[in-house]
Amino acid sequence: MSSSRLLIEQTLAVAQRLLLEQWRQKRGLIFWAVFPSTMMLLFGLVYAHNDSMRAGLDAAAAGILVGAALFFSCLGGTVAVIAAERERGTLPRLLTTPLHPAAYFLGVVIAQLLLALMQVVMLYSIALAIGVKYHGSLFLGGLILLLSVFAYVGMGFFLGARFARRSEEVVVALSAIGVPLLVLGGTFFPLEIMPQGMQAVAHINPMLHMNQAFKGVAAYGMGWAELRFEVTFLFVFCGLSLALGIQSYRHLLGVEKSK
């Protein structure tokens, strides 16, 4: 068997194992699905009740998906996976098997990507049912979502490998980090209504550029020309996040081997 084919098979096996573990944790899956669905329904009720704000519902759906749903599922999910593997002692056992280190990393990426796709379908099914409209290019929107998922997974590997040693730490860390990032990322409030100081800080928040890019496509029908800066930023940030995640993963493997 060729090395590339073996890598693909190992990667898919890792992704399947992680997805099966998610499936067995029925309670966690319920909360994973309820969180963005509830947010979408609540925003829908608010905007539907106020006709002057009705146009903002299209942008709200995009913000909830990129800013909240994918943040907690892809970044939070990756951190949780790494923390759980360290708690159970799975990583040292994996190092004694023929599993290629890259296969584990790629398996986590694929598992999170599939979960993200499910969230996209679920959230936009609800959004379209309550009157949300998607205005722009599906290809460009899909590219922005793909870059966002990869960036979140890379950040998740960095945080999980460097800081999260227990599952309990994941919830605390995500709450402490996530809520300010969501607010400054324009998930709940448009950037224009924030004080000047907050706007300056928000511009260094990658989540803001993810939100602006996907909102621009989904809610306002913008194309490549209008979103050139945001898409370029996402390409660069995605590359940096994955590089940082891979480096942190290698560091973690080195720590586990030395034990």
Rank of each mutant, 00 (worst) to 15 (best):
L45D: 01
I246P: 03
F233C: 05
F188H: 03
A202N: 03
V255P: 04
S37V: 15
V108S: 01
A200S: 15
A83R: 06
L174I: 09
H100N: 14
I126C: 02
A127T: 04
F31R: 07
V172M: 07
F214E: 03
P180L: 09
V121C: 06
L114I: 15
I110K: 01
L29D: 04
I246N: 04
Y249Q: 09
F150S: 00
A69E: 01
A33L: 13
V108F: 07
L99A: 10
V183D: 03
A243Q: 08
L42G: 05
K257E: 12
L191F: 03
R86C: 01
R166L: 05
L208C: 13
R250Y: 09
F43E: 04
V217E: 02
A127S: 13
F31Y: 15
G141E: 06
E192C: 08
V183L: 13
F43R: 03
L114G: 04
F43P: 05
L227T: 10
H100Q: 15
G185C: 08
A13M: 14
S137T: 12
D51V: 13
F189T: 10
E230D: 14
R162L: 11
A84R: 06
R5A: 13
R228H: 15
T96I: 09
I204S: 11
A151V: 08
E21Y: 07
A102N: 12
G254P: 08
L227G: 04
C74N: 03
A173N: 01
S4P: 12
R250A: 05
G245F: 06
S258N: 11
Y249E: 01
V179N: 07
Q199M: 02
L20W: 10
V172C: 02
W224F: 12
S241F: 00
A33G: 12
L99I: 15
G44A: 13
M122I: 13
F163C: 08
S241A: 15
L12N: 00
F72T: 02
E168F: 06
H135L: 14
R165G: 14
A213K: 03
A151Q: 13
L99W: 09
G107R: 02
A243F: 08
F214G: 03
P98R: 10
R5S: 11
G63L: 08
E192Y: 08
V231Y: 00
E192P: 00
I82Q: 06
A218M: 12
G77Q: 00
V170Y: 07
E230M: 14
V14G: 00
S125Q: 06
Y124I: 05
A111F: 02
I177L: 13
F214T: 05
S248T: 08
C74T: 11
S148W: 02
A164C: 11
A127F: 03
Y134R: 03
